[in-house]
Computed example of a mutant assay.
Amino acid sequence: MTSPHWRPDGPNLVVHADNAGFLPTLPDESFTMIYVDPPFNTGRVQRRQQTTMVRSESGDRVGFGGNSYATVKGALHSYDDAFTDYWAFLEPRLLEAWRLLAADGTLYVHLDYREVHYAKVMLDAIFGRDCFLNEIIWAYDYGARAKSRWPAKHDNILVYVKDPKKYHFDSAEVDREPYMAPGLVTAEKRELGKLPTDVWWHTIVSPTGKEKTGYPTQKPEGLLRRAVAASSRPGDWVLDFFAGSGTLGAVAFGLGRKFICVDANPQAIEIMAERLGVTATVVSHPAAG
């Protein structure tokens, strides 16, 4: 059943819903960009799942080495029992993301070092390895310092495209950075700045800044602004179905994009209603948590 709330010429939406129930109500290929920052701790009871990895010439996904597999779950469960549940939680939602991306669309999946390697294998299986565009490293320098190992001060953002021959990417729209060695380039280049690489140095949301909403996993607007600017156009629809504090919506509105932000957490909806309420319609779907 198609959602009664969304239509291509309709308003921006903040949707209180379980994304597993809401995403199937959206039409195919509706979004030029999807960004998600999924949780790892799903709260589900761990279980061992014996699944055989079956190579299939007619499989619908391309995985390791360009070969086609019906599933890769069996190989992974032996490495990390907890991932069995993470796969069951995340895979159907990422399959929906693939369906919802337009032919020129791009998916950004924001993770950290604990699960990024598992999710990379999952996304290779869903999208195909030839659709992997980048692994962006978001580096920051804030918080406690470990003394018994190298302090972890980065997140990973996996970037996949729907079609490696058609995806939209406009580097001219991306904010530029100062050169790290400005004395080695011309004055003209210094003034213009350089295009970012796949390592993005950006501070976290300031605990005392005006951007702070109080939501514990809030991401800085500058981080998402770069992704939205590069991978969508003014007027395009963008989607975040683990929306949290609604940073994607705030950035999308500022850049002239249309957005849907989905979350099952009432606290997130309350924060987004305050942050985005003037720019979006807040609705509740029957699948709300």
Rank of each mutant, 00 (worst) to 15 (best):
116 V>M: 11
126 I>V: 04
45 V>W: 09
243 A>V: 02
200 W>I: 15
104 D>Q: 08
226 R>H: 12
30 S>K: 08
29 E>L: 03
187 A>F: 13
232 S>M: 06
229 A>D: 12
24 P>K: 00
86 Y>F: 08
65 G>D: 07
94 L>C: 00
207 P>E: 06
101 L>N: 04
121 V>T: 15
196 P>W: 09
258 K>A: 06
72 V>F: 13
289 G>M: 01
61 R>A: 01
182 P>C: 09
223 L>C: 05
103 A>C: 03
80 D>H: 14
42 T>S: 14
73 K>G: 14
225 R>F: 09
79 Y>L: 11
1 M>K: 04
126 I>T: 03
37 D>I: 05
87 W>R: 09
80 D>W: 12
222 G>H: 04
148 S>I: 14
247 T>E: 07
109 V>E: 03
18 D>I: 02
27 P>N: 00
232 S>K: 08
212 K>T: 12
94 L>W: 02
137 I>L: 15
91 E>H: 12
252 A>D: 05
45 V>C: 10
104 D>F: 04
76 L>S: 02
240 D>E: 05
259 F>Y: 15
255 L>V: 07
122 M>G: 02
232 S>T: 07
92 P>R: 01
145 R>T: 15
101 L>Q: 01
173 E>Q: 15
71 T>Y: 01
38 P>S: 09
259 F>I: 09
134 N>A: 03
57 E>V: 00
120 K>N: 10
187 A>C: 10
67 N>Q: 14
230 A>D: 00
42 T>W: 04
98 W>L: 12
261 C>P: 04
232 S>I: 06
115 E>P: 08
123 L>H: 04
38 P>A: 09
254 G>C: 14
222 G>S: 06
229 A>Y: 06
274 E>T: 13
59 G>Q: 03
127 F>Y: 13
47 R>P: 04
93 R>V: 01
190 R>N: 14
119 A>M: 15
109 V>T: 07
153 K>L: 13
124 D>S: 13
174 V>Q: 06
248 L>A: 06
21 G>K: 03
254 G>A: 14
278 V>C: 09
100 L>V: 03
